[in-house]
Design a protein around this nucleic acid. Structure first.
Length: 580
DNA sequence: GCCGTTTTCGGCCCGACTGTTTTCAGTCG
């Protein structure tokens, strides 16, 4: 039977294999190779399942994948698992993987607990620690026992990764606290926060200051700090009352740029960059760039991040691109894309009013958009199938069209387009008559019901909707909600092919809980020549600011102005619908 | 297990901090 796995599902099997091999004590470089391959798979913009079934490409052409991993991936794509992983699970209980997730517990400790005390679960470990049985193991002591109990507590309370939009105000407040110190020269939030990932696991704060101890003291005294995990002369780690972990690193001013590159990461970007440095007899670390000459090393000046990259023969790489997904090769060839910015967005094509489930009138939304500098918007209330949102039927929609015309008659400087967010019924038909759709400027189509359909049926349903000549833009294409709801299963390769065929644009819905399409799929669309739109899906005028979260995703997907339809003036934009 | 202007074997990024150690292994990022 043919099974279809998304790339992230294949990546997870590989990561688990790596975890198990690590507990077994296998060669660390082999493990690293598997983890690297898993990361490559997860961000790969072609379906590996598809490649395997079609035989359309040699997996060994993918960077980081050679003979062995190509075989493993083939096996996973066709059977869902590997014989190797099954054998490992015969030997080591699955629950060990959970122990491995505990902070401060790595593969060596997991192995020691299991081999010497037969501990296989987090509960078992907790009981052993409470009974003071861990301290007798060689290399362990009383403090380790205490730390493990604390680690278990934080793991149980841990909410994992936090959405970026939730963390931003927390981060800003902390920066304000630190900025109050006159000794602080430069300060930046680095890590995945700066790379603008949709969620972050912790905050990495970088400060340049000649008096590190003063900054550390001030940091630890912050009112949100609940406990201190590590405290050294240059690095301190604390946990906030909310459970968020925050790292502070203090460096000398001359090292700030190199440290910023290092702490922004990602890890794989750093590894690849340092590897490139080594080939040029250079060394890169968080203190600077050094030229190696025999036993001596000469420190090269790095006043800015741009200099750090430049010394390695690279163009400056924007933080959002630093994921080791090909950006370094492009930087070496001076062929980095010119990433889209918020200023490029001239229109917003997805918003609701009091006519369906919005909080403001057409006029209020238009005025708010105009204040933000937009040149056009589309009012796209729900259609009748979304009855929980008071969706419009044909008659109410026709009245709404008239109301939009009236706003256009009275408002200068912004154009309000007549639109609809039209439901795709389970059979793939749109739920509003074509003769009414024909009177609209912009028709979004989207799925709000029957999300549990099997992958193939769901894909067929979407493709039938694309065939409707009045469908312009497929809104929030996967239906996922960040950390709340997985995407409904679809065959993304087929959806993209059809989008290109019918010239239906795909939406990047910037609403912070959606961010749909995500970064990997947006990049996939760009590579296939499928156009996107970036819209806020606003339900009140205050939501219009959320476009910035869409820009975050777009930049991570390497999108340029030309990839996004609503960067065009309104006339060109309207002509481009179904004709890009 | 991957990879190649040191190539098909022998390398594989680099450093901070902790706890248990008398010089370092484990963990983390």
């Amino acid at each position: 039977m043919k099974i279809t796995l998304e790339n992230w599902e294949i990546a997870r099997v590989l990561q688990e294999t790596a975890d198990l091999l690590e507990i077994k004590g296998e060669n660390t470089f082999k493990i690293r190779a598997i983890r690297m391959a898993a990361d490559v798979v997860e961000s790969y913009t072609e379906s590996l399942s598809d490649i395997v079934y079609r035989g359309s490409k040699d997996l060994r052409d993918v960077p980081g994948i050679g003979e062995g991993l190509a075989k493993k991936i083939h096996e996973i794509a066709t059977t869902g698992d590997t014989a190797e992983r099954r054998a490992l699970f015969e030997e080591l209980p699955r629950s060990l993987l959970e122990i491995l997730k505990l902070p401060g517990v790595g593969p060596k400790k997991v192995k020691a607990f299991y081999d010497q005390l037969k501990i296989a679960t987090v509960d078992g470990l907790e009981a052993a620690a409470r009974a003071q049985r861990l301290r007798h193991l060689p290399g362990f002591g009383e403090k380790t026992e205490t730390k493990i109990l604390a680690g278990i507590e934080s793991y149980r309370r841990d909410q994992g990764r936090y959405p970026l939009w939730e963390i931003e105000p927390v981060a800003e407040a902390l920066l304000a606290h630190l900025r109050a110190l006159p000794q602080v020269q430069r300060m930046e939030i680095a890590g995945s926060y700066r790379r603008r990932r949709e969620t972050v696991a912790d905050l990495d704060i970088l400060v340049s200051c000649a008096e590190a101890p003063t900054v550390m003291k001030h940091f630890v005294a912050y009112r949100q700090v609940k406990s201190v995990l590590l405290e050294g002369p240059t690095k301190t780690t604390v946990v906030f009352n909310s459970g968020l972990q925050v790292d502070l690193r203090v460096v000398e001013p001359e090292s700030f740029a190199a440290a910023l590159v290092y702490f922004t990461g990602s890890k794989n970007h750093n590894i690849a960059m340092r590897d490139m440095a080594k080939r040029q007899d250079l060394k890169v670390n968080e203190y600077g760039v050094f030229r190696l000459a025999g036993a001596n090393e000469e420190r090269l000046p790095t006043p800015s991040e741009k200099e750090v990259y430049s010394l390695l023969g690279l163009a400056y790489v924007p933080p959002e691109m630093r994921e080791n997904t090909g950006e370094l090769e492009r930087a070496a060839q001076r062929q980095l894309p010119h990433l889209i910015t918020i200023k490029d967005i001239l229109g917003d094509l997805h918003m609701h009013t009091v006519a369906s489930d919005g909080k403001n009138s057409i006029m209020e939304m238009a005025e708010a958009a105009q204040q933000r500098g937009l040149r056009y918007i589309a009012i796209t209330d729900h259609s009748k199938s979304t009855y929980v949102a008071n969706g419009l039927d044909e008659k109410r929609l026709l009245d709404h069209i008239k109301a939009i015309d009236q706003v256009n008659d009275t408002l200068e400087g912004i154009r309000v387009l007549k639109g609809l967010e039209c439901d795709i019924r389970p059979d793939g038909q749109l739920d509003i008559d074509n003769e009414v759709l024909a009177q609209l400027d912009v028709v979004l189509i989207s799925i709000h019901s029957h999300m549990g359909m099997p992958r193939e049926e769901m894909t067929d349903r979407i493709l039938r909707a694309f065939a409707n000549p009045y469908a312009h833009i497929f809104a929030h294409p996967t239906g996922r909600l960040v950390k709340q709801r997985d995407a409904y299963p679809i065959e993304m390769e087929r959806v993209m092919e059809a989008a290109l065929h019918y010239k239906v644009a795909l939406e990047l819905d910037a609403f912070p809980t959606r961010l749909d399409l995500n970064d990997v799929y947006c990049r996939m669309a760009k590579e296939r020549g499928v156009k996107l739109t970036i819209d806020t899906d606003s339900h009140m005028r205050e939501h219009l600011v959320n476009v910035t979260y869409g820009i975050n995703v777009a930049r991570r997907a390497w999108l340029e102005k030309s990839d996004v339809l609503n960067t065009q003036p309104v006339g060109a934009f309207l002509k481009s619908l179904r004709h890009w």
